[in-house]
Design a protein around this nucleic acid. Structure first.
Length: 909
RNA sequence: GGAUCGCUAGCUCAGUUGGUUUAGAGCACCACGUCGACAACGUGGGGGUCACUGGUUCGAACCCAGUGCGGUCCA
């Protein structure tokens, strides 16, 4: 078969994915093997594949494919998250485009549209994962709103309520006025903003004159002033000691409020006096509670002014005119109106921070609201393993530094607000009667029973269900358990086999949202960790280190890249530049490198196939082992091994064993990027640049059956090692190397022999000599086509006998001879303690040669000096470990020998 | 403001408990090369006071302290 010039992924990729699917390689069932389980972090059901997913899922695929080849029962579970707030926002947007307002729909109508949307767009992202080769068990595809899953979430809510962990309460929450829902602390992103600091005067009450003095307060939020209930100062602040207990007047509303003292106030900030607005600030609310102050709410759920709490005070026309004004306009308006009263001293520029909604970007309002919460401190008391298991590495975080972040969060954990004022999600199973009593139960029927148990007689008609749904993460935290039905059908065969899962791969950004909570759920519900290793990826950024965003337009079109470079090249590109836990600077040139690597493999295939002849595939065991024999060289008798195997085969066999051990070690430690680098260099440098060149026959000649069989077998081993990283190209070449029925995808690993250090060393010497001689040729402008005569002066002729034929070919020598003395009128090259004399037709440029040697001499002398200094230090000789001293002695003798060699060479010129 | 991580070649990063030839790789760069695998390539090459200042040690990129710069998380 004629092979194309380059590897063509677009033709190959889909073909193999279909075949793997047809053969059902990715589906897993419990059996006697050790399981290797990964649950995919479920992307938003309406999401599309981006670079972050690509990185994340490529890593998981590498781990899963490797486990599969190691003979483990690999199970990788796909699925999607209903992503309550994000999806609802999308559906609302879609409806708006169709001219439908959410407010005009009933809950059921809205959910109808939402499900329709989900069915239409829900699967897209999963289909895209097939394009990058993800070997997921598609039969297990799960969704966080599947019927069983939904019910499990509800059941867990009820259980935790019964445990006293979930409660309902009126608390300060983070309120998103755009999506009109409460958010958890984790969903609030703090951003730096430029704002103004307003210095407002609060006139002192009960003073005879209008100009009886005032309290000056600096605030960034004058729009909340009508909700002020006190002014607070630090009790140690000398400036204000006399004021404590007096009253001031709130501008515009003319409310009398007290001046109180609390340690919380920072005397350094602003004027040292803080206005207290318990309805609109978390800290103010704390102080308000501590000092039993009233709460006066002046902003509604849309972030617009409301006067409901003010009506009792008989507010002025001016106050009433604010009704319905948005908070940001209100800020300007109220500031102006206070200024008109001559009560603003000054306005300063101020750099502050505000919380914004992770989803809508809206500035968050702290708002007093009746919501459902989880008592996290109480929960942690019940499940202390959630922290200890991570700290003692039962659950190992990679990189380990993320442990600190985790610890800090858990030790300062706050209650989790789990209710959301949305419709898309699991509806809270709480039922209210007319008196406002609440019954937590799966159904209204059960709620009636619960009420009866409390002696309250109700019918279903008397109850209405809570309108709110649960935070998305309140369902995601069950993911590793419920994808195996561990909640809905406890102790089933699957959960007992696959759980705890093996490895979790996810972004650092959701360590609190998701990772921490899965660990908590694992211990609370299963009394077990949910996974043993957590591999955190960094964020994918662009070349300049900027976050990828729609606005910047710097997020590449992933599917376009796959089309252009091929899935393997994309996988390579993203993995080669991805140190564990660090952000990845994505650069398309890495994809080019991946594509070039594909071609390198492809061309190696073409070369090897050129050597194929009828009956070429010969079993390896047809060839006998090495033996030891005496050998005659130049009249001297040497004991040297007679290799029936050519040196190239021996060397590469050992090189493979060495590398494979190294790669396994790297992968055990999740150093995927480094492992790929080792594989890349093993294939490109050792296999292609050295091994294939060493065995390459002259044009028109063929290689021996032995060489051919070994080469095919080496190539297969390389493909095997590379397969988890680049599944398509490796499978394709595996099948092109020779006719076969099996697939690389499920080929099992074989035991790796220990490498023979002496052969590896000899290989290194050979490479070093070849490079040095080529360098010398290059520097002396000997053309590649011109042959040389090579004279070798060495104490170890045996070292060179086995590699002579390779050396001749690689440095284009006509002859090789061994010599005891310096050969005059030649280029001299020193490697280790051996000398090489290049005899050539070419006129020699002795000055350049001399300079080269002098430079080397200087280097060696400097080196020797540093070694001698060490050895001359008495304390070093006394204290250092013997093997370290031994090593330094060897360095010394080596350097001395080399200096001698160079000096002799210089004398010869 | 608190916590935390980092600073090694032009760029992105390795460097395992301090000693392994006076620091390694890939990309980029320079020179030469189009002999039957590969120019998306080959063969060579140049390039770093390991952020700075002190300390511990026979010995420091590595350990300790401080300074500077940058990132991330939390408030």
């Amino acid at each position: 078969m004629e092979l194309s010039k380059n590897f063509e992924p677009s033709i190959v990729d889909g073909k193999w994915y279909d075949r793997w699917m047809a053969k059902d390689y990715f589906s897993s069932k419990p059996d006697g093997r050790e399981p290797y389980t990964i649950v995919m972090p479920p992307p938003n059901v309406t999401g599309v594949l981006h670079m972050g997913h690509c990185l994340n899922n490529t890593i998981q695929d590498i781990l899963v494919r490797r486990a599969r080849m190691q003979g483990k029962n690999a199970c990788w579970v796909p699925g999607t998250d209903h992503a309550s707030i994000a999806t609802e926002a999308k559906v609302v947007g879609m409806l708006r485009e169709r001219g439908i307002a959410k407010s005009s729909l009933s809950r059921d109508e809205f959910l109808g549209y939402a499900w329709e949307w989900k069915e239409k767009y829900g699967g897209i992202i999963l289909q895209q994962l097939k394009k990058i080769g993800c070997s997921l068990d598609w039969n297990r595809t799960s969704f966080t709103m599947d019927a069983d899953y939904y019910k499990s979430v509800i059941d867990i809510f009820i259980k935790l309520h019964e445990d006293g962990i979930i409660y309902r309460g009126l608390r300060m929450v983070n309120w998103d006025p755009v999506s009109k829902t409460a958010l958890s602390d984790e969903e609030v992103i703090f951003k730096d903003i430029d704002s103004k600091l307003y210095y407002v005067k609060y006139p002192l009450a009960d003073t005879p004159s209008a100009d009886g003095g005032f309290m000056m307060v600096a605030t960034t939020r004058p729009e909340t002033i009508l909700g002020d209930v006190a002014i607070c100062v630090n009790p140690t602040d000398e400036r204000y000691k006399a004021w404590i207990g007096k009253e001031v007047i709130v501008p515009i509303i003319n409310r009398r409020i007290p001046i109180i003292a609390d340690e919380y106030v920072d005397a350094e900030f602003g004027t040292g006096a803080l206005k207290i607005t318990p309805a609109h600030d978390k800290n103010d609310n704390e102080i308000g509670r501590k000092h039993s102050l009233k709460t006066i709410d002046t902003l509604d759920e849309n972030g617009k002014f409301t006067a409901i709490d003010l009506l009792a005070e008989n507010p002025s026309e001016l106050v009433l005119s604010y009704i319905g004004v948005d908070r940001f306009d209100l800020r300007k308006k109220i500031a102006e109106d206070i200024a008109a009263l001559n009560l603003i001293e000054k306005i300063e520029d101020y750099k502050g921070q505000v919380g914004t909604s992770e989803r809508t970007g809206a500035v968050i309002e702290s708002r007093l609201s009746l919501q459902w919460f989880m008592d996290m401190k109480g929960f942690m008391k019940k499940n202390p393993e959630a922290l200890s298991s991570v700290m003692n590495d039962e659950i190992t975080f990679h990189p380990a530094k993320t442990k600190n972040t985790y610890k800090h969060w858990l030790e300062n954990i706050k209650d989790w607000c789990i209710s959301r004022q949305l419709w898309w999600g699991q509806r809270i199973p709480a039922w209210y009667d007319a008196k406002g009593n609440v019954y937590v139960a799966t159904t209204a029927e059960e709620a009636v029973v619960k009420a009866a148990a409390q002696g309250i007689k109700l019918t279903i008609a008397d109850l209405h269900q809570d309108e709110d749904v649960l935070d998305t993460w309140f369902s995601s935290w069950l993911w590793p358990i419920e994808v195996f039905k561990g909640v809905s059908n406890p102790n089933n065969k699957e959960i007992n086999y696959y759980y705890p899962t093996t490895t979790l791969v996810t972004g650092q950004d959701i360590i609190f949202f998701w990772v921490a909570r899965m660990i908590m759920a694992g211990y609370d519900l299963k009394n077990q960790l949910p996974f043993k290793d957590v591999y955190f990826t960094g964020m994918v950024r662009d070349k300049q280190g900027r976050k990828m965003s729609k606005q910047l337009g710097n997020s590449p079109d992933l599917l376009g890249l796959i089309e252009q470079y091929g899935a393997d090249a994309v996988r390579f590109g993203i993995m080669i530049a991805s140190p564990a836990g660090n952000d990845i600077l994505f650069d398309e040139s890495a994809l080019e490198q991946g594509r070039n690597f594909n071609n390198k493999l492809w061309n190696a295939l073409k070369l090897v196939k050129m050597w194929w002849k009828e009956g070429g595939a010969v079993a390896l065991n047809n060839f006998s082992d090495d033996k030891i024999a005496t050998h005659n060289v130049n009249g001297y008798s040497f004991i040297i091994p007679i290799h029936t195997k050519p040196f190239a085969i021996q060397w590469f066999e050992n090189r493979l064993n060495e590398s494979e051990n190294q790669i396994n070690q790297l992968l055990e430690h999740f150093k995927l990027s480094e492992a790929l680098k080792v594989i890349y260099s093993l294939i490109w440098d050792d296999f292609c640049s050295w091994y294939l060149e060493w065995i390459k026959p002259k044009f028109g000649e063929t290689i021996s059956e032995e060489l051919y069989a070994h080469t095919i077998s080496f190539f297969e081993r390389l493909l095997h090692i590379l397969h988890p990283f680049m599944p398509f190209v490796t499978e394709e070449i595996y099948h092109l190397l020779q006719e076969r029925v099996d697939d690389l995808c499920v080929k099992q690993n074989e035991a790796i022999a220990a490498p023979d250090a002496s052969i590896l060393q000899q290989g290194e010497l050979l490479k070093q000599v070849i490079s040095a001689l080529r360098d010398a040729r290059n520097k002396n402008q000997i053309k590649p086509k011109e042959t040389i005569k090579l004279h070798i002066q060495t104490g170890e002729i045996a070292n060179y006998k086995a590699i002579e034929s390779i050396l001749i070919k690689q440095v284009n020598a006509a002859t090789i001879t061994y010599t005891d003395i310096t050969v005059s009128n030649t280029i001299v090259v020193a490697v280790e303690t051996d000398k090489f004399f290049i005899e050539s037709e070419k006129e020699l440029d002795t000055t350049a040669l001399k300079q080269e040697l002098l430079k080397d001499l200087l280097h060696q002398q400097g080196f020797l000096e540093s070694v001698l200094k060490k050895l001359g230090n008495e304390r070093f000789v006394q204290n250092a470990r013997p093997e370290v001293i031994e090593l330094e002695r060897k360095k010394q003798t080596d350097a001395e020998a080399r200096i001698k060699t160079i000096e002799e060479s210089l004398a010869n010129i």
